Simulated scan of single mutants.
Amino acid sequence: MGLSERIEGLRESWRPGHALLVIPLALIVVITVVDLLAPADIHLGPLLVIAPAITASFAGPLSAGVIGVLAVAAQAFIGLHFGILTSRSVLVQIAAIAVLSALVVFFCLIRERHGQELARVRSVAEAAQQVLLWPLPDRIGPLRVASLYLAAEDEALIGGDLYAATRTGGGTHVMIGDVRGKGLAAIGEAALLLGAFREAAHQHASLPALAAALERSVGRYQADFEPESEAGERFVTALLLEIPDGDPIIRMTSCGHPAPLLLSPGHSVTVPSLHPAPPLGVGGTGQTGYTVDVFTFEDGDTLLLYTDGVIEARGREGDFYPFAERAARWTDSSPEMLLRHLRRDLLAHAGGYLGDDAAVIAIHRIPAVDSAGSGLHHGKAAQSDGFRHGSGRTGPAREC
Protein backbone atom coordinates (compact mmCIF):
# COMPACT_ATOMS: atom_id res chain seq x y z
CA MET A 1 0.00 0.00 0.00
CA GLY A 2 1.44 3.36 -1.05
CA LEU A 3 1.66 6.49 1.04
CA SER A 4 -1.20 8.16 -0.83
CA GLU A 5 -3.47 5.16 -0.23
CA ARG A 6 -2.66 5.17 3.48
CA ILE A 7 -3.43 8.87 3.72
CA GLU A 8 -6.73 8.33 1.90
CA GLY A 9 -7.61 5.49 4.26
CA LEU A 10 -6.94 7.66 7.29
CA ARG A 11 -9.02 10.43 5.77
CA GLU A 12 -11.99 8.10 5.25
CA SER A 13 -11.75 6.70 8.79
CA TRP A 14 -11.56 10.19 10.32
CA ARG A 15 -15.01 11.37 11.24
CA PRO A 16 -16.10 14.98 11.77
CA GLY A 17 -16.78 14.12 15.43
CA HIS A 18 -13.12 13.34 15.96
CA ALA A 19 -12.15 16.93 15.26
CA LEU A 20 -14.64 18.10 17.89
CA LEU A 21 -12.73 16.16 20.54
CA VAL A 22 -10.41 19.15 20.65
CA ILE A 23 -13.15 21.05 22.52
CA PRO A 24 -13.38 18.79 25.64
CA LEU A 25 -9.61 18.35 25.66
CA ALA A 26 -9.16 22.12 25.60
CA LEU A 27 -11.71 22.48 28.39
CA ILE A 28 -9.78 20.05 30.57
CA VAL A 29 -6.55 21.93 29.99
CA VAL A 30 -8.09 25.38 30.54
CA ILE A 31 -10.00 24.40 33.71
CA THR A 32 -6.91 22.71 35.14
CA VAL A 33 -4.61 25.65 34.41
CA VAL A 34 -7.08 28.23 35.74
CA ASP A 35 -7.65 26.18 38.90
CA LEU A 36 -3.90 25.97 39.49
CA LEU A 37 -3.50 29.73 39.05
CA ALA A 38 -6.65 30.79 40.95
CA PRO A 39 -6.63 31.74 44.63
CA ALA A 40 -6.71 28.85 47.12
CA ASP A 41 -10.36 29.46 48.07
CA ILE A 42 -11.57 29.01 44.44
CA HIS A 43 -12.05 25.40 43.26
CA LEU A 44 -12.86 24.86 39.57
CA GLY A 45 -12.05 21.14 39.47
CA PRO A 46 -15.70 19.96 39.65
CA LEU A 47 -16.31 21.77 36.34
CA LEU A 48 -14.18 19.10 34.63
CA VAL A 49 -17.28 16.92 34.34
CA ILE A 50 -18.42 19.26 31.56
CA ALA A 51 -15.84 17.70 29.23
CA PRO A 52 -17.29 14.14 29.09
CA ALA A 53 -20.82 15.56 29.16
CA ILE A 54 -20.40 17.56 25.94
CA THR A 55 -18.41 14.72 24.33
CA ALA A 56 -21.55 12.58 24.45
CA SER A 57 -23.28 14.98 22.03
CA PHE A 58 -20.99 14.18 19.10
CA ALA A 59 -18.94 11.06 19.95
CA GLY A 60 -19.46 7.53 21.10
CA PRO A 61 -19.06 5.83 24.48
CA LEU A 62 -15.36 5.08 23.95
CA SER A 63 -14.47 8.73 23.35
CA ALA A 64 -16.67 9.85 26.25
CA GLY A 65 -14.95 7.28 28.49
CA VAL A 66 -11.48 8.47 27.49
CA ILE A 67 -12.42 12.10 28.16
CA GLY A 68 -13.91 11.05 31.50
CA VAL A 69 -10.67 9.34 32.52
CA LEU A 70 -8.71 12.44 31.56
CA ALA A 71 -11.07 14.62 33.60
CA VAL A 72 -10.57 12.39 36.67
CA ALA A 73 -6.81 12.46 36.13
CA ALA A 74 -6.86 16.26 35.86
CA GLN A 75 -8.77 16.55 39.15
CA ALA A 76 -6.26 14.19 40.80
CA PHE A 77 -3.39 16.25 39.41
CA ILE A 78 -4.90 19.43 40.89
CA GLY A 79 -5.16 17.77 44.29
CA LEU A 80 -1.62 16.42 44.03
CA HIS A 81 -0.30 19.86 43.04
CA PHE A 82 -1.75 21.46 46.17
CA GLY A 83 -0.80 18.49 48.37
CA ILE A 84 -4.41 17.70 49.29
CA LEU A 85 -4.97 14.62 47.10
CA THR A 86 -6.03 12.50 50.06
CA SER A 87 -8.29 15.11 51.58
CA ARG A 88 -11.98 14.34 51.90
CA SER A 89 -12.99 17.23 49.62
CA VAL A 90 -10.71 16.21 46.72
CA LEU A 91 -11.60 12.52 47.03
CA VAL A 92 -15.31 13.38 46.86
CA GLN A 93 -14.73 15.57 43.81
CA ILE A 94 -12.79 12.80 42.06
CA ALA A 95 -15.51 10.27 42.89
CA ALA A 96 -18.25 12.64 41.66
CA ILE A 97 -16.49 13.22 38.31
CA ALA A 98 -15.89 9.47 37.95
CA VAL A 99 -19.54 8.60 38.66
CA LEU A 100 -20.92 11.30 36.36
CA SER A 101 -18.50 10.25 33.59
CA ALA A 102 -19.63 6.64 34.00
CA LEU A 103 -23.27 7.72 33.64
CA VAL A 104 -22.42 9.64 30.49
CA VAL A 105 -20.75 6.56 29.02
CA PHE A 106 -23.77 4.42 30.00
CA PHE A 107 -26.22 6.72 28.21
CA CYS A 108 -23.89 6.82 25.20
CA LEU A 109 -24.06 3.04 25.05
CA ILE A 110 -27.87 3.12 25.16
CA ARG A 111 -27.98 5.78 22.45
CA GLU A 112 -25.59 3.80 20.26
CA ARG A 113 -27.70 0.66 20.65
CA HIS A 114 -30.84 2.56 19.70
CA GLY A 115 -28.99 4.02 16.72
CA GLN A 116 -28.05 0.55 15.54
CA GLU A 117 -31.66 -0.60 15.91
CA LEU A 118 -32.85 2.40 13.91
CA ALA A 119 -30.29 1.65 11.22
CA ARG A 120 -31.59 -1.93 10.98
CA VAL A 121 -35.18 -0.70 10.79
CA ARG A 122 -34.26 1.74 8.05
CA SER A 123 -32.51 -0.99 6.11
CA VAL A 124 -35.68 -3.10 6.30
CA ALA A 125 -37.72 -0.06 5.17
CA GLU A 126 -35.37 0.44 2.23
CA ALA A 127 -35.76 -3.23 1.28
CA ALA A 128 -39.54 -2.89 1.55
CA GLN A 129 -39.42 0.17 -0.68
CA GLN A 130 -37.46 -1.75 -3.30
CA VAL A 131 -40.06 -4.54 -3.21
CA LEU A 132 -43.10 -2.28 -3.18
CA LEU A 133 -41.94 0.55 -5.43
CA TRP A 134 -39.65 -1.09 -7.93
CA PRO A 135 -37.19 1.54 -9.17
CA LEU A 136 -38.26 2.68 -12.61
CA PRO A 137 -35.57 2.11 -15.23
CA ASP A 138 -33.88 5.13 -16.75
CA ARG A 139 -34.89 3.96 -20.22
CA ILE A 140 -38.11 2.23 -21.30
CA GLY A 141 -38.24 1.75 -25.06
CA PRO A 142 -38.19 5.22 -26.65
CA LEU A 143 -38.74 6.88 -23.26
CA ARG A 144 -36.41 8.31 -20.65
CA VAL A 145 -37.91 8.07 -17.18
CA ALA A 146 -37.10 9.53 -13.76
CA SER A 147 -39.10 9.24 -10.55
CA LEU A 148 -39.24 11.05 -7.21
CA TYR A 149 -40.91 10.00 -3.97
CA LEU A 150 -41.11 12.20 -0.87
CA ALA A 151 -42.74 10.63 2.19
CA ALA A 152 -44.44 13.00 4.61
CA GLU A 153 -44.07 10.88 7.74
CA ASP A 154 -40.86 11.21 9.74
CA GLU A 155 -38.27 8.50 9.04
CA ALA A 156 -40.58 6.98 6.42
CA LEU A 157 -39.44 6.00 2.96
CA ILE A 158 -42.76 4.78 1.57
CA GLY A 159 -46.40 5.68 2.02
CA GLY A 160 -49.71 5.59 0.18
CA ASP A 161 -48.51 7.07 -3.14
CA LEU A 162 -47.55 4.60 -5.82
CA TYR A 163 -46.29 4.29 -9.37
CA ALA A 164 -45.27 1.54 -11.76
CA ALA A 165 -44.38 1.00 -15.41
CA THR A 166 -44.24 -2.09 -17.58
CA ARG A 167 -43.57 -2.94 -21.21
CA THR A 168 -46.54 -4.47 -23.04
CA GLY A 169 -46.16 -5.38 -26.68
CA GLY A 170 -45.34 -2.33 -28.74
CA GLY A 171 -45.70 0.20 -25.98
CA THR A 172 -45.42 1.05 -22.32
CA HIS A 173 -48.09 1.08 -19.63
CA VAL A 174 -47.65 3.45 -16.69
CA MET A 175 -49.70 3.93 -13.54
CA ILE A 176 -49.50 6.54 -10.81
CA GLY A 177 -51.90 6.57 -7.88
CA ASP A 178 -52.66 7.82 -4.41
CA VAL A 179 -54.27 5.75 -1.67
CA ARG A 180 -56.52 7.71 0.67
CA GLY A 181 -55.07 7.69 4.16
CA LYS A 182 -51.66 7.08 5.66
CA GLY A 183 -49.76 4.47 7.61
CA LEU A 184 -49.57 0.70 7.20
CA ALA A 185 -53.12 0.38 5.86
CA ALA A 186 -52.33 2.72 2.97
CA ILE A 187 -49.07 0.89 2.26
CA GLY A 188 -50.89 -2.45 2.17
CA GLU A 189 -53.46 -1.18 -0.32
CA ALA A 190 -50.72 0.38 -2.43
CA ALA A 191 -48.87 -2.94 -2.52
CA LEU A 192 -52.02 -4.74 -3.65
CA LEU A 193 -52.70 -2.24 -6.45
CA LEU A 194 -49.12 -2.35 -7.71
CA GLY A 195 -49.15 -6.14 -7.88
CA ALA A 196 -52.52 -6.11 -9.61
CA PHE A 197 -51.34 -3.57 -12.19
CA ARG A 198 -48.16 -5.45 -13.05
CA GLU A 199 -50.18 -8.57 -13.73
CA ALA A 200 -53.31 -7.07 -15.32
CA ALA A 201 -51.35 -4.82 -17.70
CA HIS A 202 -50.26 -7.95 -19.61
CA GLN A 203 -53.75 -9.45 -19.69
CA HIS A 204 -55.89 -6.50 -20.78
CA ALA A 205 -55.08 -4.65 -24.00
CA SER A 206 -57.28 -1.61 -23.42
CA LEU A 207 -57.11 0.93 -20.61
CA PRO A 208 -60.83 0.58 -19.72
CA ALA A 209 -60.38 -3.17 -19.28
CA LEU A 210 -57.26 -2.56 -17.19
CA ALA A 211 -59.09 -0.02 -15.00
CA ALA A 212 -61.99 -2.42 -14.51
CA ALA A 213 -59.58 -5.19 -13.46
CA LEU A 214 -57.92 -2.89 -10.93
CA GLU A 215 -61.34 -1.87 -9.60
CA ARG A 216 -62.18 -5.52 -8.98
CA SER A 217 -58.86 -6.08 -7.18
CA VAL A 218 -59.40 -3.08 -4.92
CA GLY A 219 -62.98 -4.19 -4.23
CA ARG A 220 -61.84 -7.66 -3.15
CA TYR A 221 -59.16 -6.17 -0.92
CA GLN A 222 -61.64 -3.85 0.76
CA ALA A 223 -64.11 -6.67 1.30
CA ASP A 224 -61.46 -8.73 3.09
CA PHE A 225 -59.48 -6.10 5.00
CA GLU A 226 -61.44 -2.85 5.24
CA PRO A 227 -62.54 -2.12 8.83
CA GLU A 228 -66.27 -1.65 9.31
CA SER A 229 -65.63 1.80 10.77
CA GLU A 230 -64.06 2.88 7.46
CA ALA A 231 -66.57 1.26 5.12
CA GLY A 232 -66.94 3.35 2.00
CA GLU A 233 -64.19 5.76 2.99
CA ARG A 234 -61.21 3.96 1.44
CA PHE A 235 -60.41 4.55 -2.23
CA VAL A 236 -57.51 5.04 -4.61
CA THR A 237 -57.10 7.69 -7.28
CA ALA A 238 -55.14 6.42 -10.27
CA LEU A 239 -54.00 7.57 -13.70
CA LEU A 240 -53.37 4.89 -16.30
CA LEU A 241 -51.32 5.60 -19.41
CA GLU A 242 -50.49 3.75 -22.60
CA ILE A 243 -47.59 5.14 -24.65
CA PRO A 244 -47.15 3.44 -28.05
CA ASP A 245 -43.62 3.16 -29.38
CA GLY A 246 -44.44 4.00 -32.97
CA ASP A 247 -46.99 6.82 -32.66
CA PRO A 248 -46.46 10.31 -31.16
CA ILE A 249 -49.52 9.99 -28.93
CA ILE A 250 -50.39 9.04 -25.40
CA ARG A 251 -53.60 7.45 -24.13
CA MET A 252 -54.85 8.16 -20.61
CA THR A 253 -57.62 6.95 -18.37
CA SER A 254 -58.14 8.83 -15.13
CA CYS A 255 -59.78 7.31 -12.08
CA GLY A 256 -60.21 10.51 -10.10
CA HIS A 257 -56.53 11.43 -10.44
CA PRO A 258 -55.16 14.89 -11.37
CA ALA A 259 -54.24 15.48 -14.99
CA PRO A 260 -50.50 15.49 -15.77
CA LEU A 261 -48.46 18.33 -17.18
CA LEU A 262 -47.18 18.17 -20.76
CA LEU A 263 -43.90 20.05 -21.10
CA SER A 264 -42.62 21.04 -24.52
CA PRO A 265 -39.31 22.72 -25.44
CA GLY A 266 -39.37 26.49 -25.04
CA HIS A 267 -41.02 26.68 -21.58
CA SER A 268 -44.40 25.51 -22.88
CA VAL A 269 -46.65 23.76 -20.35
CA THR A 270 -50.05 22.28 -21.17
CA VAL A 271 -52.58 20.61 -18.89
CA PRO A 272 -54.49 17.93 -20.83
CA SER A 273 -58.25 17.97 -20.37
CA LEU A 274 -59.31 14.59 -18.99
CA HIS A 275 -62.71 12.97 -18.41
CA PRO A 276 -62.12 11.21 -15.08
CA ALA A 277 -64.08 8.27 -13.76
CA PRO A 278 -64.63 7.75 -10.01
CA PRO A 279 -61.63 6.59 -7.97
CA LEU A 280 -60.95 2.89 -7.59
CA GLY A 281 -62.85 1.40 -4.68
CA VAL A 282 -65.79 3.79 -4.83
CA GLY A 283 -67.84 1.45 -6.98
CA GLY A 284 -67.25 -0.41 -10.21
CA THR A 285 -68.42 1.35 -13.34
CA GLY A 286 -67.67 -1.43 -15.81
CA GLN A 287 -65.46 -1.02 -18.84
CA THR A 288 -67.93 1.32 -20.53
CA GLY A 289 -67.61 3.79 -17.65
CA TYR A 290 -63.96 4.60 -18.35
CA THR A 291 -62.95 7.11 -21.01
CA VAL A 292 -59.68 7.03 -22.93
CA ASP A 293 -58.36 10.50 -23.71
CA VAL A 294 -55.74 10.70 -26.46
CA PHE A 295 -53.17 13.49 -26.78
CA THR A 296 -50.08 14.25 -28.78
CA PHE A 297 -46.77 13.24 -27.22
CA GLU A 298 -44.04 14.10 -29.69
CA ASP A 299 -40.29 13.71 -29.71
CA GLY A 300 -38.71 16.02 -27.14
CA ASP A 301 -41.86 16.34 -25.02
CA THR A 302 -41.87 15.51 -21.32
CA LEU A 303 -44.89 14.32 -19.37
CA LEU A 304 -45.03 15.05 -15.62
CA LEU A 305 -47.23 12.70 -13.58
CA TYR A 306 -47.76 13.59 -9.95
CA THR A 307 -49.88 13.02 -6.86
CA ASP A 308 -51.83 15.68 -5.00
CA GLY A 309 -49.14 15.94 -2.33
CA VAL A 310 -47.26 18.12 -4.82
CA ILE A 311 -49.95 20.62 -5.76
CA GLU A 312 -51.35 20.76 -2.20
CA ALA A 313 -48.01 21.54 -0.56
CA ARG A 314 -48.46 24.83 1.30
CA GLY A 315 -45.93 27.57 1.81
CA ARG A 316 -45.37 29.61 4.96
CA GLU A 317 -48.22 31.94 3.99
CA GLY A 318 -50.61 29.09 3.23
CA ASP A 319 -50.31 29.33 -0.55
CA PHE A 320 -50.28 26.15 -2.65
CA TYR A 321 -47.21 25.17 -4.63
CA PRO A 322 -47.50 26.64 -8.17
CA PHE A 323 -46.49 23.41 -9.85
CA ALA A 324 -47.18 24.29 -13.50
CA GLU A 325 -45.53 27.69 -13.17
CA ARG A 326 -42.38 26.29 -11.59
CA ALA A 327 -42.17 23.32 -13.98
CA ALA A 328 -42.20 25.74 -16.92
CA ARG A 329 -38.75 26.94 -15.87
CA TRP A 330 -37.14 23.58 -16.63
CA THR A 331 -38.91 22.28 -19.74
CA ASP A 332 -35.58 21.87 -21.53
CA SER A 333 -33.96 19.87 -18.71
CA SER A 334 -33.47 16.11 -18.70
CA PRO A 335 -35.94 14.09 -16.58
CA GLU A 336 -33.34 13.62 -13.85
CA MET A 337 -32.42 17.31 -13.66
CA LEU A 338 -36.07 18.33 -13.90
CA LEU A 339 -36.99 16.28 -10.82
CA ARG A 340 -33.90 17.47 -9.01
CA HIS A 341 -34.96 21.08 -9.55
CA LEU A 342 -38.55 20.32 -8.56
CA ARG A 343 -37.54 18.50 -5.39
CA ARG A 344 -35.38 21.36 -4.20
CA ASP A 345 -37.98 23.98 -5.13
CA LEU A 346 -40.90 22.06 -3.60
CA LEU A 347 -39.16 21.52 -0.26
CA ALA A 348 -38.07 25.15 -0.19
CA HIS A 349 -41.66 26.26 -0.77
CA ALA A 350 -42.99 23.96 1.96
CA GLY A 351 -40.29 24.88 4.45
CA GLY A 352 -38.74 21.42 4.29
CA TYR A 353 -41.88 19.58 5.45
CA LEU A 354 -44.70 18.13 3.36
CA GLY A 355 -48.13 17.54 4.81
CA ASP A 356 -48.77 14.60 2.48
CA ASP A 357 -46.73 12.10 0.51
CA ALA A 358 -45.66 13.33 -2.91
CA ALA A 359 -44.65 11.37 -6.00
CA VAL A 360 -43.58 12.67 -9.41
CA ILE A 361 -42.66 10.83 -12.61
CA ALA A 362 -41.02 12.53 -15.59
CA ILE A 363 -41.42 10.72 -18.93
CA HIS A 364 -39.46 12.14 -21.87
CA ARG A 365 -39.92 10.88 -25.41
CA ILE A 366 -36.49 10.58 -26.97
CA PRO A 367 -36.13 12.10 -30.46
CA ALA A 368 -36.00 9.55 -33.25
CA VAL A 369 -32.31 10.27 -33.90
CA ASP A 370 -31.43 9.40 -30.28
CA SER A 371 -33.53 6.24 -30.18
CA ALA A 372 -32.46 4.89 -33.58
CA GLY A 373 -30.00 2.56 -31.93
CA SER A 374 -32.79 0.75 -30.10
CA GLY A 375 -34.54 -0.09 -33.34
CA LEU A 376 -37.60 1.93 -32.36
CA HIS A 377 -38.99 4.49 -34.78
CA HIS A 378 -41.80 6.96 -34.37
CA GLY A 379 -44.41 7.57 -37.03
CA LYS A 380 -47.31 9.96 -37.30
CA ALA A 381 -50.56 9.21 -35.53
CA ALA A 382 -53.14 7.47 -37.66
CA GLN A 383 -56.72 8.58 -37.69
CA SER A 384 -57.69 5.10 -36.47
CA ASP A 385 -55.89 5.88 -33.22
CA GLY A 386 -58.56 8.46 -32.46
CA PHE A 387 -56.18 11.44 -32.76
CA ARG A 388 -57.33 14.73 -34.19
CA HIS A 389 -54.86 17.34 -35.34
CA GLY A 390 -55.86 20.82 -34.30
CA SER A 391 -54.47 24.18 -33.32
CA GLY A 392 -53.76 23.10 -29.71
CA ARG A 393 -51.04 20.79 -28.50
CA THR A 394 -53.40 18.44 -26.79
CA GLY A 395 -56.63 18.37 -28.73
CA PRO A 396 -58.26 15.29 -27.18
CA ALA A 397 -60.16 12.54 -28.81
CA ARG A 398 -62.20 10.18 -26.70
CA GLU A 399 -62.29 6.43 -26.83
CA CYS A 400 -64.79 4.51 -24.75
Rank of each mutant, 00 (worst) to 15 (best):
E5G: 05
V179D: 00
A327Y: 01
V292T: 15
L342Q: 00
G115M: 04
A128T: 11
S273T: 09
P244H: 15
R113Y: 03
F297I: 04
A372D: 12
A327R: 03
D41L: 04
Q75C: 02
F320H: 13
Q222H: 05
A372R: 14
A19L: 09
L100H: 07
R393Q: 06
T172N: 03
H349D: 01
L27H: 07
L100M: 13
L184I: 11
F295Q: 02
H18R: 13
D308L: 13
T237N: 04
G390V: 00
P135I: 07
A324P: 10
P272S: 01
G232Q: 00
L303C: 08
L261F: 10
F295L: 13
E317L: 11
T166I: 11
S89K: 02
I31W: 14
P367E: 10
Y306A: 09
P279M: 09
S334V: 08
G169I: 04
T296S: 15
I42C: 00
R326D: 15
S254Y: 10
L346K: 03
L20V: 11
G309W: 06
C108R: 10
S123F: 05
A151F: 09
A205S: 14
P279N: 02
F107I: 05
T253C: 15
S101L: 10
F197Q: 08
L354K: 14
A71E: 02
G181V: 10
A259I: 00
L37H: 08
D319Y: 04
H257N: 02
V174Q: 02
G246L: 07
I23P: 06
S334Q: 10
G283E: 10
R180N: 08
H204W: 02
I42Q: 00
G68R: 01
L240Q: 12
Q222E: 05
A328M: 02
T55V: 11
S374E: 14
D154C: 01
M175E: 08
E199V: 14
S334H: 06
E5F: 06
H275D: 07
A358Y: 06
R316S: 12
E117V: 15
I250E: 12
E117L: 12
G315C: 06
V69M: 05
S229E: 11
V72D: 10
L44D: 00
S384C: 01
L27Q: 08
A51I: 13
L136N: 04
F197S: 13
T302R: 05
L85R: 14
H114E: 12
Q383M: 13
L354W: 14
G79V: 05
I28K: 10
A358R: 04
A231S: 03
I84T: 12
L44Y: 06
V104C: 07
R316N: 12
T32I: 07
L192M: 15
D178C: 06
W14L: 15
D245F: 01
A127V: 13
L303P: 14
G392N: 11
D357A: 03
A102Q: 12
A19F: 11
L261E: 03
A362I: 07
A51L: 13
A125D: 05
A64W: 08
L48Y: 08
E317K: 14
L62R: 15
D385P: 09
V66Y: 07
I311K: 01
G351T: 00
A51V: 11
H43Y: 09
A164Q: 15
D293E: 14
A119P: 01
I110A: 06
L148S: 07
I78S: 03
H202G: 03
I67H: 00
P46C: 02
M1G: 14
S57Y: 04
T394Q: 09
